[in-house]
Design a protein around this nucleic acid. Structure first.
Lengths: 217, 217
DNA sequence: ACCGCTATCGCTCATTTGGGGGGGATTGTT
DNA sequence: AACAATCCCCCCCAAATGAGCGATAGCGGT
């Protein structure tokens, strides 16, 4: 509701970071023609923090490959300077490495450059409404990170062993675990020995690493 | 390309799992009227595995709250029986718990029931193209899981200490780390001592737990 | 030239841990 | 009744580890 009012009273302010001059100017033109206010377009993002502080754009379109600081760093700068600014990545890269670096830096959306203009407008609208516009292949990658590996879980830990493991992965020592669970010191060790066997590891550190990486918790 | 051909030759097959009779029938009607082939609509998903094996739907719309097995279990069943079937959750729930359980089970999309029909068709199209349609608020939740906590990292570990820590979180022993890094046993121990101080922990297990949970790696 | 920091290595000592035994109690299955 | 699985407890020993000392060498900043 508030948002719609806002849209009627003043145009959406957008900043563009993109080092390809032609593309950047095309984008600015396209957005301006569609009643967006382009507060500025830049061919590098070294000054991104100051720019968003001064012009307070609602949305930023951010390329990744630019001279100077990369767009990934750019997102971080912007999110630190003005968290309310929504940042949509706009890039040709679709490798996991760059994608997840951007997401970790706080990007609100991730569009591939092959996105048609109509979808671009949709995306801007969506991010303004609190969404997270992503190109289909990107969204798929993101969801896939949640899928469990099928083989990972079944180590047939008994309930009690699972419980001990949960204390272990908090970094607690045997002695502490024993007192937390109201067990004898040697009982906990006994459980641990069985856990190590079932996980095919030979010390607590390996067990913690394996448990946390394969989410057996 | 292949996909478009497919669309022209035969309608998209859809199965619906939804325990609200009125809603389920409305959906089936709506889809049928728009040239989709509804292979079946069901008020519970206990037999989901067999159903998708027999009718081989391209897309499944899956509710969560149903009598018998929950829709979350339903996704898992379907994905195990026929991974090629795209499953779109269609539910009123937007709590993190259920959301991430569905994603872990392998859901390909997640729509809230307040989604207007037009968007529903868009979503079906998107999932067929290999995307991951999500309601805006859901997509935002998903992206937020990637954002780093800002305060977490800066423990001022030196480059060398970081390197030692990276070996440590793989579960390696001091002796192994020393040989991997071509260092003396006591040097590694020395680094570890400093790491423990900087991380405010007092043993390797705690360090591993902290490093993995706060992604200092 | 001095200082601080890091990286490297060394030495003790007490504690923790892993690996190997063993046994008894309970429960559910065959 | 026999059996397997789980849970609980105990002992011993060798290795790994944490904590406390100290030392040298290099490197950059003042």
């Amino acid at each position: 509701m508030v948002l719609l009012l806002h849209l009627f009273t003043m145009p959406v302010k957008i900043a563009i970071f993109e080092d390809n001059d032609r593309l950047r100017e095309s984008l600015a033109y396209l957005l301006t023609m569609n009643n967006y206010e382009v507060t500025g377009d830049y061919n590098q993002c070294n000054e991104a923090a100051n720019i968003v502080r001064v012009y307070q754009p609602d949305v930023v379109l951010m390329d990744i490959d630019m001279p100077g600081e990369s767009g990934i760093k750019g997102v971080a700068l912007i999110k630190e300077a003005r968290p309310d600014t929504a940042v949509i990545m706009y890039t040709v890269f679709e490798d996991d490495e760059k994608l997840f670096q951007c997401l970790c830096a706080g990007a609100n959306g991730y569009l591939l450059k092959k996105t048609p203009p109509a979808k671009l407008f949709d995306a801007i609208q969506e991010v303004l409404e609190g969404g997270a516009p992503m190109s289909p292949s990107i969204a798929r990658k993101v969801l896939n990170t949640f899928k469990n590996k099928p083989e990972s879980n079944n180590y047939m830990l008994s309930p009690r062993e699972t419980e001990v493991l949960q204390w272990l992965i908090k970094g607690y020592s045997i002695k502490i675990i024993a007192s937390e669970m109201n067990l004898a010191f040697d009982t906990v060790r006994s459980h641990l020995k069985n856990i190590y066997q079932k996980l095919h590891v030979h010390c607590g550190k390996e067990a913690i690493a394996k448990a946390l990486n394969e989410r057996i918790v």
